[in-house]
Design a protein around this nucleic acid. Sequence first.
DNA 1: AATTTCGGTCAGATGCGCTT
DNA 2: AAGCGCATCTGACCGAAATT
Length: 368
Amino acid sequence: MLNIIDFNKIVHEDFFNSSFYHKNKLLLLIWYFHDILASNPLDYSIDYVKLFKYPEEDLKIITQDWEKIVRKIRNGKAHELSEGDTMYLGACTKGSTAAKSMRKQPNSDILAPQRAFSLKGSYMTSILRNYILNDIGTYESIVKDPSALEEYSFEEYVKSEIRKHRGRSLDELMTEFNINPKSKDRTSRVALKILGVESKNASEFEKANIKVKAIRIEYNGKIKEHMSFPTFKFKDLVNESWEESEFRTMLSETRFFFVIYKKDKNGNLILDKEMFWNMPIGILDTEVKKVWKEAKQIIKDGVVLTQKGKRTFNNLPSPSENPVSHVRPHAQNSEDTYPLPDGRKMPKQCFWLNNSFILEQISLQEED
DNA sequence: AATTTCGGTCAGATGCGCTT
DNA sequence: AAGCGCATCTGACCGAAATT
């Protein structure tokens, strides 16, 4: 967490003269161990301290993040800011309560939640690992020479590299880049190899919490499968609030890099498009919230199971009930379960994003 | 009859705990 | 520090029932 964003003032600033840069160009970072056994936070042990200046390659990306945030505010879209918009520098909500923290913004009459600059959790983790613990398990970076970002933003650079291979088949790319066609992460490996990265993730993607997701579009133009996410524990979910829920946190903080393949008439997957995407905050706090709350209520009240033939149907939110999200099993088999609050067991479930929603987002191709 | 829906399954990758 | 066994995770896929 860094400084509060003054929506009205920041629109007149440029990065190197900004209040953000002024205050935060040099940081004293202090890491302490969050010891859950310690009764008093003052007893937490301070393990690492470091006077930190952004490495040149990171500062380039932070500058671009700052520009992106300010552009949104200048366009009267402060209320649409989201942590997932940017890579290392985020605009996170800040204030005592959501209701008390609404602020006026220039160029729009819509009130926006107060926000502050923050270095994202994924970026802080990587600073700790790379620059302080000197962890050997660090990933290669995509942009080897920071001056490559003078002209293009990181995202534009990444997209243009992928675009060079547009029209080629996945099989062809796997052969060329020597990737095991059976590996589950083959599409993300292909993308990384195109970007010149041998390691199984890129340092920029790791620092920015960007997840590569393959999207396969069928010959008929539809996406067959919904998009899955990690499973949740029923007992945890019923104790969460939407604002602090695992699913909301994940969706608001993760940026996705969609690598889109389209099936030709012979069923070959052809590299077709690429785009960065994150869940629009307006949809997150309306439709997705609805599904989440409904799921929570159903689990709280006791899931109703009905046996039909071999299969057991539940009354959790299905894809037809909501345009954006639903709940479905994501388990090894029907024996792979988590306990329900009432003691029964149920196959592990997760929230999914509807295939139709993903398709809609792709066709919007909204690049702010 | 064809397509869509949605509970379920598969299998390689990953991660954890334990031992040496 | 490395190796092992095992559990879990994850992206992709399956197929019976429902719908068109």
